[in-house]
Every structure is written in structure tokens, then in C-alpha cells.
Deep mutational scan, measured.
Amino acid sequence: SLSVDNKKFWATVESSEHSFEVPIYAETLDEALELAEWQYVPAGFEVTRVRPCVAP
């Protein structure tokens, strides 16, 4: 099958004044980091952490 098993990760994104967490959907932690950097670094943010979303 061609289905992709995307998992939810939380990326911590920082600017000079703010820090916030955004959801990233990817297959692996490395891919989540790449996606977060691709989305947020060009906008002037720094991705400081990516972690798996742990269900309660």
C-alpha cells in the first residue's frame, strides 16, 4: 500500500522574543526536524527542539 504512517511531533520554534511549539507530521524524528527547519528557518525562526508527541 502507499499509505504513509505519519506521526505527530512537537517542534519548539524560537524567535528573538518568543518561543512556541508547533505540531509537525512526519514519519521519523529526522524528517520532522527537516520539515520544521524548512518551514520556519526562512521566516527567521530557530528550531531548537523536536520531540515525539506522547499520547496521554
Rank of each mutant, 00 (worst) to 15 (best):
S1D: 13
S1P: 11
S1H: 09
L2R: 01
L2Q: 11
S3M: 11
V4I: 13
V4G: 12
D5E: 10
D5T: 15
K7W: 11
K8T: 07
F9Q: 00
F9A: 00
W10N: 01
W10R: 01
W10D: 00
W10S: 03
W10I: 12
W10F: 06
A11C: 10
A11I: 12
A11M: 04
T12F: 05
T12A: 04
V13I: 15
V13F: 06
V13L: 08
E14H: 11
E14F: 07
S15Q: 06
S15F: 07
S15M: 08
S15E: 03
S16E: 12
E17R: 08
E17W: 10
S19M: 07
F20L: 05
V22S: 01
V22Y: 06
V22A: 04
V22I: 08
P23D: 05
P23Q: 08
I24D: 00
I24K: 00
I24C: 05
I24A: 01
Y25F: 10
Y25N: 04
E27Y: 10
L29W: 14
L29R: 05
L29N: 02
L29I: 10
D30S: 14
D30Q: 15
D30T: 12
D30I: 10
D30M: 11
D30A: 14
D30R: 14
E31F: 04
E31V: 05
A32G: 01
E34A: 15
L35N: 04
L35E: 04
A36C: 06
A36H: 01
E37D: 04
E37F: 11
E37N: 09
E37L: 13
E37T: 08
W38T: 13
Q39P: 03
Q39I: 15
Y40V: 05
Y40F: 08
V41L: 12
P42V: 07
P42Q: 08
A43G: 07
G44T: 00
F45S: 03
F45W: 07
E46D: 07
E46N: 09
V47S: 01
V47A: 03
T48M: 06
T48I: 14
T48N: 04
R49S: 15
R49A: 15
P52A: 08
P52E: 15
A55V: 12
A55Y: 13
A55D: 11
A55P: 12
A55T: 11
P56N: 13
P56F: 10
